[in-house]
């Protein structure tokens, strides 16, 4: 049986001879003395834009390209109305919801059967829901991603088991890129500590394992709908 010490000692032995210095190949904007860090990533990754509206358009375009749907609402009253209309139009009979959050009251009043993900909930019941509705921690413009955690999205399962995932978000949750989203998460969980799971969701579940042909809903949701309001 090995332990940490055995392996770490072997690693130290192995590292005794230094590796040759990384040689840069002459392209790119880096030099040997300044290899670059997180503060530089922004310049190399796809550009995002400064204003909220630019970033939101980028978020929407990226999400759409990945077959997610982005819907704008005016205020919480309008959000409730739009969700109700959807539920009627798409025949949502059974909804999976979290107990907590700013949207809890609003979602609790939607028509249909509800399964709440609280301690000891029935996973089979969540599986049989038409829709899982969750909040999120951030929307990422650069990638069209939604950041959810086990704290913000009613645990690990709610956002991935039902065939349709609906996200309710607020405009101040939109961030330019992944660095900003991670910084936002640090801020949110600074006091209470990290939740046990964080997940960047980028479009509905997908696979290309058969002939590299895109199929949605491989194991997770076939549909992803994101509701977001706009700044006044």
């Amino acid at each position: 049986m090995s332990d940490a010490r055995t392996i770490l000692t072997r690693i130290r032995e192995a590292l005794r001879e230094p590796a040759p210095k990384r040689h840069l190949h002459g392209h790119g904007s880096l030099d040997e003395d300044r290899p670059g860090g997180p503060e530089d990533f922004r310049a190399w990754l796809p550009p995002v834009g400064e204003r909220w509206s630019e970033q939101f358009e980028l978020f929407r375009a990226n999400a759409l390209a990945l077959k997610a749907e982005v819907v704008v609402y005016r205020d919480t009253k309008d959000l409730a109305t739009q969700l109700r209309q959807r539920a009627a139009a798409e025949g949502w009979k059974k909804l999976a919801l979290a107990r907590t959050g700013w949207s809890a009251d609003l979602l609790g009043q939607l028509p249909g059967d509800k399964v709440f993900a609280d301690a000891g909930y029935d996973r089979g019941a969540v599986e049989s829901c038409d829709v899982g509705v969750t909040e999120c921690d951030a929307l990422v413009a650069q990638t069209g991603s939604v950041l959810v955690t086990s704290a913000s999205a009613g645990g690990r399962v709610l956002s991935v088991l039902p065939p349709h995932h609906v996200v309710v978000a607020r405009h101040d949750q939109l961030v330019p890129d992944l660095s900003a989203a991670l910084a936002r998460a640090r801020e949110i969980y600074r006091e209470g500590g990290w939740p046990s799971m964080l997940s960047f969701i980028t479009g509905p579940s997908r696979t290309g394992d058969i002939e590299r042909i895109l199929v949605l809903g491989a194991h997770g949701p076939k549909r992803l709908t994101i509701f977001c309001d706009q700044p006044a």
Binding site: A117, D118, A119, S150, G155, G193, L198, I201, R206
Partner: peptide, 21 residues
Amino acid sequence: QPMTCYNSLYTGPRKAGEVDG
């Protein structure tokens, strides 16, 4: 791809106060 569909971070087992995991 621009980004893979799920990029998930795991910090530990189910935490006190969490509903599943």
